[in-house]
């Protein structure tokens, strides 16, 4: 089955993409770029770098812009899925939804309207097992946004390796946050994945940070051999 992966550049949609590649045919990646930093559906830091990630993966990218207002976003999502169907003949859509009933239900509704299959391979995933698998499989994931205490400026740009995962475990226990950042505590960007032909080298970044709220903007990045 030809599938399009709804794609934000973060670890969940990338991992879902990898699951899909192993079981079906991924024909394209699809991003909805929100101009609203408070987007309900589509996270924003560094989403413009999705094109570079798509190139690293050797997959075409369908990119649609949205003003990022709550109901309009659904129409923009529909537009993106229609474009992916028209250009790449997709029969289904893959998302990285883990726990959000809100996000999963909205995508399911749009897919159903368009007669597309919907796949959420990370649905209700065990967070511990998922994070372990992510590292074991060879994903390189960097934290590019922090949105709650105790994630301070020092977390921006950190790679999620075993040491970071250990720290996240301690934090998850102490602060009642999710290990995966599912509650919006932090955002991630994938610089390497098992299905990437080349990996992303981050060359220049800038930080905007204040009171446990900040983003790492990737100003310049390129592809290098693995």
């Amino acid at each position: 089955m030809k599938l399009g992966v709804l794609f934000s550049g973060g670890k969940d949609s990338m991992f879902a993409c990898w699951q899909a590649i192993r079981k079906e045919e991924v024909a394209c990646l699809i991003t909805v770029v929100s101009r609203n930093p408070e987007s309900y559906m589509f996270h924003t830091p560094n989403i413009r770098l999705a094109a570079l990630q798509a190139e690293a993966a050797g997959l075409p990218l369908v990119e649609v812009e949205t003003a990022g207002e709550k109901e309009e976003e659904l129409l923009d999502l529909k537009r993106a899925l229609l474009a992916a169907r028209e250009q790449y003949g997709i029969e289904g859509v893959v998302t990285g939804a883990v726990l959000s009933v809100y996000q999963a239900a909205r995508v399911q509704r749009v897919c159903r309207e368009l007669g597309l299959w919907s796949f959420n391979p990370l649905w209700l995933a065990d967070q511990e097992a998922y994070m372990e698998e992510l590292i074991d499989a060879g994903f390189t994931v960097v934290i590019v946004g922090v949105f709650s205490s105790p994630f301070d400026e020092s977390w921006l740009g950190r790679e999620i390796d075993r040491r970071t995962l250990d720290e996240l475990r301690t934090i998850a226990k102490k602060y009642q946050v999710t290990l995966t950042g599912e509650g919006g505590e932090f955002e991630t960007f994938v610089v390497d994945a098992p299905f990437f032909a080349r990996r992303i080298a981050i060359e220049e970044t800038s930080k905007v940070y204040r009171n446990y709220n900040g983003v790492l903007r990737i100003e310049r990045a390129g592809l290098v051999a693995k």
Binding site: Q19, A20, K23, E24, V94, F119, N120, P121, L122, W123, L124, A125, D126
Partner: peptide
């Protein structure tokens, strides 16, 4: 058997 939907509909019950 072993479909992409298995993780979504069987694995959560399994866990």
């Amino acid at each position: 058997d072993g479909s992409l939907s298995r993780d979504e509909f069987v694995a959560p019950v399994e866990r």
